[in-house]
Nucleic acid binder design. Structure first.
Lengths: 207, 207
DNA sequence: ACCGGCATGTTGACAATGTCTACATACAGG
DNA sequence: CCTGTATGTAGACATTGTCAACATGCCGGT
């Protein structure tokens, strides 16, 4: 017997409960979906409400305004990214192999949620909210861990760890953004720009 | 005898000419100004028109829609960035010194026009317009030049030039974005993250 | 020197949006 | 069981992007 999802029930004109029951999550999911569809966060709250099957001002019972919705979406993005990268770091490997695997996963994440990624790190909109939020900071600590282990193994030069981690993050973030925006055109940046750039950085990291 | 600027004349209620005469540029300037003020491109066309002293739909005679205005603004941004970096590359220096000077100028540019910089490279809005536009591509060629010269001097490893240039750009862009968004907090990324990151990359570039 | 076309501006209208206030419903705890 | 509070709804407001119809005046051909 098929179970009707609340989100579908709420779309019915008749016979639908006054209360949604899980609106907050429905809003987050719908918004996430629309960010994918429209490749940006220019979706309207009213359309989100429409899709969730509630009135146009219902979302305001869960988020004071659109910005705060975007802030929460960004934090969810950080959670997801963290989870993916943590998984990629789990099985042991040489520093180089681990670095490249993480890089791949990182780029893949951004490729899967381009708008979300831009919202998280390049919107200039959620700065205050994400500033120092542990959920946003956690991922960077994974990079620090990776470098530290690399140094312990003698694979990475003995420079300040957090500086090296910052270098990795910047490199990865820069590559990702340029990739997302379509600036990595072979005629301009060569055949395999990502590999080339990562390699260049690795040569600066490795002993 | 003081000369009245057209933009001011147009703001007068009375005695103002029917035609602005330089509206297109006035719009671009005003929009640029508002991007600075509001740190984003969420300004309204109507406010731009108001400030320029014209009716709310006058801008549509010069730009089909807001997106196309943003596209032009981004291209102007590329022009300005190119000019600054070209100037920074003029006087001769060692590869390392030149690289660091360019990096400084690059970061300064982004710091001076944060919203514009984000619009240029991280908006996901102007991709098609800027895609392959020579005005947008020109700056990258400067990086290629710099690397080529570095290789000729024997300061840079003999790897494919455009890949190395891509690495530089990615690193610089990543650092810039993280800086703009306020993610470079000392407790997280160490004391001088920019210097550290640039150094790490340099060690991967240099022979 | 005239005149007509075309680029440039203006006015008014439309559908949509974010957000507010007043009101409705029903769940949960005493 | 009953009431307060969390959650939804309905309607209103100012504002926006954009369009169409109309106004103005500069510029080139006669």
């Amino acid at each position: 017997m098929p179970v009707k999802k609340i989100v579908d029930v709420m779309k019915e004109k008749q016979n639908r409960p006054y209360h949604h029951g899980d609106l907050r999550n429905a809003i987050l999911d719908t918004a996430m979906e629309m960010m994918l569809e429209e490749d940006g966060w220019n979706f309207t709250l009213r359309e989100v409400a429409r899709r969730a099957g509630v009135s146009h001002s219902a979302p305001y019972k869960h988020f004071p305004d659109k910005m705060s919705l975007l802030g929460e979406l960004a934090l969810i993005g950080f959670d997801r990214a963290y989870e993916r990268i943590r998984a990629a770091m789990e099985e042991p490997a040489t520093f180089r192999a681990k670095f490249l695997r993480v890089a791949k996963v990182y780029l893949q994440f951004a490729h899967d949620h381009p708008a979300l990624y831009r919202l998280m790190l390049g919107s200039g909109v959620v700065t205050e909210q994400t500033q120092g939020d542990p959920r946003a900071a956690a991922t960077f600590e994974l990079a620090v861990e990776m470098i530290e282990q690399g140094q312990r193994e003698g694979a990475v030069r003995p420079h300040p760890v957090r500086g090296q981690a910052a270098a990795c993050w910047a490199q990865l973030h820069g590559l990702t953004m340029l990739d997302l925006e379509g600036f990595l055109i072979p005629e301009k940046v060569g055949e395999k720009p990502v590999e080339a750039a990562l390699n260049t950085l690795l040569e600066g990291l490795e002993e």
